[in-house]
């Protein structure tokens, strides 16, 4: 694959056009989960979505995944509107959500078996490659509950990559892990993304995590969920833990923190 220069891709491959999502809660009142969101995501760009809980981050992801229809507006991938789940997408959830009755190897190929009723030899080979890529080569025969939380989440990432999706959606994938495992997996994700470039939408509520990973950060505010600002992360790649000590990193972090807190001060 050609060396992707994520910041320099003008052609959007995902576009949100005035997307709103209104839910009717059980008492009949309307909740605006997402209010008029418009932005584009370039090919192989790494986008982090950052915001407090209840800001519609997950709604954004679910709309893009085709799991939820937006109330207003339209999302398109490669120019064609999203009206249901699509093959180009792989999803990693907050919890690993592996199937406890399958070993790790079978968990990786489960989506194929689930969707088509069978797994091809090619997919099995790919599963083995991915196990190696995420550092679980020796654990293919283990069941999920024999693995640590971090290892389970690696397996979930490998599972999402099995059909080689163009777009990877990650819904706070590291938030249930301890801080050390979290850093480790962030770096590993960077490594995977460099080796196999993909468009990534990464939802998080951690500012350092967003800065370490993303090309751009969508800062969102809550009630109603709004895209407040889109920040270009001009930190050089490849990034590592040293990136966290750069002055520019702190500048950006402080800027985002002010954004998030100023909104809170308004209320």
């Amino acid at each position: 694959m050609s060396a992707a220069a994520p910041n320099a891709t003008p052609r959007p491959n995902i576009s949100f056009d005035r997307v709103s999502q209104v839910f009717t809660s059980s008492d009949g009142s309307e909740v605006v989960a997402l209010d008029n969101a418009s932005f584009d995501i370039g090919r192989h760009e790494f986008i982090a979505v950052l915001g407090p809980s209840g800001c519609g981050k997950s709604t954004l992801l679910r709309i893009l995944a085709g799991l939820v229809r937006p109330t207003h507006g339209q999302v398109s991938i490669y120019g064609s509107p999203v009206d249901g789940p699509r093959d180009e997408i792989g999803i990693v959830f907050q919890k690993p959500t592996l199937l406890p009755w399958l070993n790790i190897r079978d968990n990786l190929t489960f989506p194929m078996r689930h969707k088509y009723g069978r797994v091809t030899a090619q997919e099995i080979t790919r599963g083995e490659e991915l196990l190696e890529l995420v550092g679980l080569k020796e654990f293919g025969n283990k069941r999920p509950d024999e693995l640590s939380g971090g290892m389970q989440q690696r397996a979930a990432i490998a599972r999402a990559l099995l059909h080689d999706p163009e777009i990877l959606l990650m819904d706070e994938p590291f938030s249930a892990l301890d801080a050390l495992t979290r850093d480790e997996l962030s770096l590993e994700l960077l490594n995977i993304w460099t080796q196999r470039p993909k468009t990534v939408l990464f939802i998080t509520h951690s500012i350092p995590e967003a800065l370490l990973l993303a090309d751009r950060i969508l800062v969102m505010s809550a009630r109603p969920g709004r895209v407040q600002e889109i920040i270009d992360v001009d930190l050089p790649r490849p990034r590592s833990m040293e990136t966290l000590t750069e002055p520019r990193f702190n500048e950006l972090a402080n800027h985002i923190r002010r954004k998030v807190f100023s909104r809170h001060a308004d209320h």
Binding site: R62, A65, L67, P85, I89, Q94, K95, T97, H114, K115
Partner: peptide
């Protein structure tokens, strides 16, 4: 059944019957 797993099934476009049988 964890909601996320059901979403995974839906994101794959799998039928309700498969969702029940496999998950």
């Amino acid at each position: 059944t964890p909601e996320e797993l059901v979403e995974l099934s839906r994101s794959l476009g799998a039928s309700k019957a498969r969702e029940y049988r496999n998950i």
